[in-house]
Design a protein around this nucleic acid. Structure first.
Lengths: 173, 173
DNA sequence: ACCTGAACACCGTTCAAGT
DNA sequence: ACCTGAACACCGTTCAAGT
């Protein structure tokens, strides 16, 4: 007689994301996640290979959420702001994205909105380079902001706006 | 009769950096570091508060090395290349810098060379914003390159050169 | 003053046994 | 088929005892 399924992969990943956002990656233990979904730690291994795989799934789910946000934008400036809002709302998830590499497929999917905006901004030929330039500045700015690496004074909102303007200028020239 | 000191903080940090670069942060255990300096794990606690503090010291030492490299450059382009070379030589140490925040003092010290180059490039008034813009793009590019996030084709050396050129254009306009 | 073995709490993971 | 308790290896950390 099969035991009824008491949890699911989706529930486990969702629980992992909550734990991550509340306490950082160190708190994402199999124990903590199991507690949250109401099973014992060993049961998780029926749904996920190991802790490493769980963190990768959490990163993938986070990237998909980010992609949805970006998709709702059409300008590069709008995307930059959506990106930053997302990073502020889910700092731990956002940070996790820099640590774990996505599959080529997820990466391509998530890049699509930025590439589309880059195409309309600079044309087909330079779209990839432009999207990379923009994304590099953006992720750099946000990771430094989240890490508290901007402590030499000045207003960060202003620095962000300045950056967007400079990126636009760079791509236009 | 005091036991002779069998290791030192400097030796411990150096050992930690070696372990980090060979096996990533997960391998930096008190056991592994103690083995490498030739003492038992509990002895490390006479020199460093805990593993957390050791990783912070490793990050600080890495930042200081990076600063020395930057100091030897005078143009923003030269610094960008020195930055990238450093990231390629010590990927784990470089990645650790994004994770752990430096003290305000170390941060200010390490920012000085970039600020100086920015001053000569755009003048006193915009130097801070320009240095931030440049550093954000640079750290973003390198962290994405190290994470393998640039997999949509194209040559990375070329993308890097393109980025430097765009940053220069953005700051000049 | 620093080093050590022993001990403790905690964590990831495996596995045989339950339903 | 999934869940569980028990068990194991490993890790960070503390501490009393050694020199």
């Amino acid at each position: 007689m099969p035991t009824p399924q008491r949890t699911s992969l989706a529930e486990i990943v969702a629980a992992g994301r909550e734990v991550l956002e509340t306490g950082g990656p160190g708190r994402v233990t199999m124990q903590a996640v199991a507690d949250r979904v109401g099973v014992r730690a060993p049961s998780l291994y029926k749904h996920v290979r190991d802790r490493e795989a769980l963190l990768t799934l959490i990163a993938a789910a986070t990237l998909e959420d980010l992609r949805e946000r970006l998709e709702a934008q059409d300008s590069l400036a709008g995307m930059a702001h959506a990106y930053r809002t997302f990073a502020h709302e889910r700092p731990e998830g956002f940070r996790l994205l820099s640590t774990r590499s996505a599959t080529a497929e997820d990466l391509a999917r998530a890049s699509e909105p930025v590439l589309a905006a880059a195409r309309t901004a600079v044309g087909e030929t330079d779209a990839l380079e432009a999207a990379r330039f923009m994304t590099a500045w953006l992720t750099g700015f946000l990771s430094m902001e989240l890490a508290g690496a901007f402590r030499l004074g000045g207003d960060l909102d202003h620095a962000f706006a300045y950056g967007i303007e400079r990126v636009s200028a760079a791509l236009a020239s």
